[in-house]
Simulated scan of single mutants.
Amino acid sequence: MPHLPLSALEVAVVQRDFPPSASLRNCEAAAREFDRLGYHRLWFAEHHHSPAIGVFPPPIMTAHIAAATSHLRVGSGGVLAPNHAPLTVAEQFTTLAALHEGRIDLGIGRGPGTFHEGTARALRRGADPATDEEYRRDVAAILDHLRECSLGQLPEPWLLASSEAGAAVAALLGLPIAVAHHIRPQNTVRVLGRYREEFRPSAWREDPYALLCVETVCADTEERAAELKRPMDIIKSRLLAGQAEEPFVSPAAAADHRFTAEESEQLAAFGAHQAYGTPESVASRLTQLADATAADELMLVTPVYDVADRVRSFELVAKALAAGS
């Protein structure tokens, strides 16, 4: 694998044994380490009404973390267009771009950012979910407003996608694409194929550019990596069963949890597309994914309980990939 930019996606992991506000402080501590380790960009995902993933609006986190770091590109992964007025999104991110020149990204996505129906409707002020056409118009409007609101420096716009419909929007508007392989890995090949086939050069990009986001948990041993990802596996199994999310339990507490045969099969099927284990095995897996998808950039998301373990995972991956490049 040629040397690819390596980036990070952060979610505010809520620990059962700590107040939710601790997740925000942990994100800042991690960001400083990502900056030190030489990661290219750090994005924050929009979430609402989740006991497991704290609420941290991407514009606010982007502003705070950009001020707390020196080199990272910082931004949204993403702002969910159906939840916001296009003009508001443009004003927020053009202001951030003016304050932190050359360091602000605006990743735009479609999902509601919540599994709670009442919250989703509240975000939409009671409106039904956006149609494909409404979403395309919202994204196009955000791009138009970016130019109108420019304060001399523009954020870099991205389109987040996990489906062919999202790929088509990114291609039509000539945007770089961030593929949510960590959510729907079964769609990745089709998403990238359609994006590259239909891409139209634009004022934003002359050529297609694809970032691949992979769930990654790395530790010094395979056993420790398995322990670290087990709390997230519990949350995934609850979601697959249609049950409510809960805060992350510690790896020690998660060790006592027993998965059903069906849950274990589902988790194994998902995990086969991600990257877990020692630095050597994770580097090998990420290299395989990059080669298979011809990705231009890799982004890692590491939803583990303790911030020190999360940072350690990112450190081990960066060193392993650098050693092999």
Score class of each variant (00 low, 15 high):
residue 143 L to W: 06
residue 304 V to F: 00
residue 239 L to G: 07
residue 8 A to V: 15
residue 207 D to P: 05
residue 50 S to P: 03
residue 76 S to M: 06
residue 257 H to M: 06
residue 256 D to G: 09
residue 105 D to Y: 12
residue 60 I to V: 08
residue 257 H to I: 08
residue 235 I to T: 07
residue 22 A to M: 12
residue 4 L to Y: 02
residue 127 A to F: 05
residue 137 R to N: 05
residue 69 T to N: 03
residue 214 V to T: 07
residue 13 V to K: 02
residue 75 G to E: 06
residue 115 F to W: 13
residue 190 R to H: 08
residue 298 L to I: 04
residue 213 C to T: 15
residue 213 C to Y: 04
residue 250 S to R: 00
residue 263 E to N: 05
residue 114 T to M: 04
residue 167 A to K: 06
residue 117 E to Q: 12
residue 104 I to A: 08
residue 96 L to Q: 04
residue 288 Q to N: 09
residue 261 A to E: 02
residue 109 G to I: 11
residue 146 L to R: 00
residue 110 R to I: 10
residue 19 P to D: 07
residue 36 R to T: 00
residue 310 R to C: 03
residue 227 E to C: 03
residue 290 A to C: 08
residue 294 A to W: 10
residue 65 I to E: 05
residue 225 A to D: 01
residue 9 L to M: 08
residue 282 V to F: 05
residue 302 T to C: 10
residue 325 S to T: 09
residue 219 A to H: 03
residue 228 L to H: 07
residue 25 R to I: 05
residue 15 Q to R: 14
residue 261 A to T: 03
residue 229 K to P: 00
residue 191 V to A: 14
residue 201 P to T: 03
residue 208 P to Q: 02
residue 182 H to I: 00
residue 124 R to M: 10
residue 172 L to D: 11
residue 282 V to C: 01
residue 116 H to I: 07
residue 88 T to G: 13
residue 293 T to E: 12
residue 39 Y to K: 06
residue 298 L to K: 11
residue 15 Q to S: 04
residue 119 T to I: 00
residue 157 P to M: 12
residue 257 H to L: 07
residue 240 L to D: 10
residue 309 D to L: 01
residue 201 P to I: 03
residue 307 V to C: 00
residue 161 A to L: 12
residue 39 Y to W: 04
residue 216 T to Y: 08
residue 152 G to T: 14
residue 157 P to W: 13
residue 83 N to R: 10
residue 254 A to V: 00
residue 192 L to C: 13
residue 194 R to P: 11
residue 186 Q to L: 09
residue 231 P to S: 02
residue 25 R to T: 03
residue 1 M to F: 03
residue 96 L to D: 12
residue 198 E to S: 14
